[in-house]
């Protein structure tokens, strides 16, 4: 697989593999085949929240054509989807539904936080009703900044996600969450509290950022 030149194949160099491939012999491993296959069939959930969703729709149309990367199959059901694109502002009233959708998706699943609002609350960060980033409840794989990001940025984020998937190991401590028994993979849905969501963040997923002060300043 020329897609992944850095994949480890003990005892044989990439040059020799390329030479074999020219001679009609394909040398690969289950891991490469698995990650190559899953990286090129990332099916997103048909789910939009705000103006970023318009850019997501544009990315799936003819001009940008997300089908070039194997992700044109927007699924209307979370049971069939691999990728949750959180495209837009997540209000506190909407957040439990987003987490519930995420819980309904089967592993392996990935999450892209698209745009400033999904990353941090964006321009509404100081508001009382907007969740300050979906990464408070869901593990986010790729953050795409922008307000909203252009379709090219979404495609770039998708390619970055594909590279991340191709780097997955099937075994060992570096294996992703869905291949390991020791990692939790359930994400509790927050409750509507009297003043805020309960809890305001999932401590297993998110911790408040620590400010590193420049001591010279």
């Amino acid at each position: 697989m020329s897609d992944n030149p850095s994949a480890p194949t003990p005892g044989i160099t990439q040059q020799e593999r390329d030479e074999l491939r020219r001679q009609g012999i394909l040398l690969t491993s289950i891991q490469e085949l698995y990650t190559w296959g899953s990286s090129h069939s990332v099916w997103p959930l048909n789910f939009g929240l705000a103006c970023c969703a318009i850019e997501m729709i544009a990315a799936s149309m003819a001009k940008f054509d997300i089908a070039r990367f194997g992700s044109e199959v927007f699924r209307p059901s979370p049971r069939q989807a691999d990728l949750l694109i959180v495209s837009g502002t997540v209000t506190k009233k909407m957040a439990p539904q987003v987490v519930r959708l995420w819980d309904q998706m089967p592993e392996p699943k990935y999450c892209i936080a698209m745009g400033a609002c999904a990353i941090s609350g964006g321009p509404f960060k100081q508001g009382y009703n907007v969740l300050k980033g979906i990464d408070r409840y869901i593990p986010v794989d790729i953050y795409i900044p922008g307000c909203p990001p252009r379709p090219e940025a979404l495609l770039h984020g998708l390619v970055q996600l594909q590279e991340k998937i191709r780097g997955f190991k099937l075994t060992g401590p570096d294996a992703p969450r869905h291949l390991r028994a020791d990692l939790p993979c359930d994400y509790p849905v927050p409750e509507f509290g009297a003043h805020d969501l309960e809890p305001p963040a999932n401590p297993d997923v998110w911790k408040a950022p620590v400010l590193v002060r420049n001591e010279k300043a």
Binding site: Q126, K132, D196, P200, P209
Partner: peptide
């Protein structure tokens, strides 16, 4: 929340 004396939940981050 739109009352002047409303205090939003204190979940400030950096």
């Amino acid at each position: 929340p739109m009352r002047r004396d409303y205090v939003a939940p204190d979940d400030y981050e950096w």
